[in-house]
Amino acid sequence: MNGVLVDTSVWIEYFRGNPDFINPGLQLIEEGNAYSLEVVFAELAQGAKHKKEVTFIMEFFSNMKLLDYPGLTFSAGIYSQENKLIHHGVGLIDAMIILCAKTYDLKIWTLDNKIKRYIGYDMNFSTKDYFG
């Protein structure tokens, strides 16, 4: 497996200590197969309830494998426009996630049904498929 781009919705469950996400998340991180984007961690920071959560997110972010590259946001806007993602209910941040996953040949681990419907089975990461 090349790796997994982890969406905000999954990180939220991971940070909440949800056992369905902790063990698979830890394994992906330990194997070097977990990736993210700066904007995903910006969403997490935006939703933090207090300074302690922000500090935790910042520390985690500083050790995360990020896939950001210059022009990503604009490229995602073009990709979204060309593929009419807005008509699928997929916003710009999700378009960035999808574009990066396609660019780096990664699966996407998300709880967002709009993303799942758009990317289909081949790009959707399932812990059942990965961990048995």
Rank of each mutant, 00 (worst) to 15 (best):
N2F: 02
L5I: 13
D7S: 02
I12Q: 05
E13A: 07
E13C: 13
E13D: 14
Y14G: 00
F15Y: 06
R16M: 03
R16N: 04
P19N: 08
D20R: 03
G25L: 10
G25N: 07
G25Q: 12
Q27S: 11
L28G: 02
I29E: 11
E31A: 15
Y35G: 01
Y35W: 01
S36G: 13
L37D: 10
F41L: 03
A42G: 10
A42P: 11
Q46V: 06
G47V: 03
K49T: 15
H50N: 15
H50M: 07
H50F: 11
V54I: 09
V54C: 06
V54N: 04
F56V: 12
M58R: 15
F60R: 13
F60N: 14
F61H: 15
F61W: 14
N63T: 14
N63V: 08
K65Q: 12
K65V: 15
L67P: 05
P70D: 01
G71E: 08
L72R: 09
T73Q: 08
F74C: 08
I78D: 08
I78P: 04
E82M: 11
E82G: 05
H87M: 05
H88T: 13
H88C: 12
H88I: 12
G91L: 05
L92K: 05
L92D: 12
D94Q: 02
D94A: 02
A95C: 10
A95K: 10
A95G: 07
A95S: 15
M96C: 10
I97N: 01
I98E: 01
L99I: 08
L99C: 05
T103I: 09
Y104K: 13
Y104A: 09
L106M: 03
K107M: 15
K107N: 09
K107P: 03
W109M: 04
T110K: 01
L111P: 06
I115G: 00
I115K: 00
R117P: 14
R117A: 14
Y118M: 15
Y118L: 14
Y118W: 06
G120E: 01
D122G: 07
M123W: 05
M123Q: 14
S126A: 10
T127I: 10
T127S: 13
Y130N: 07
F131D: 08
G132A: 11
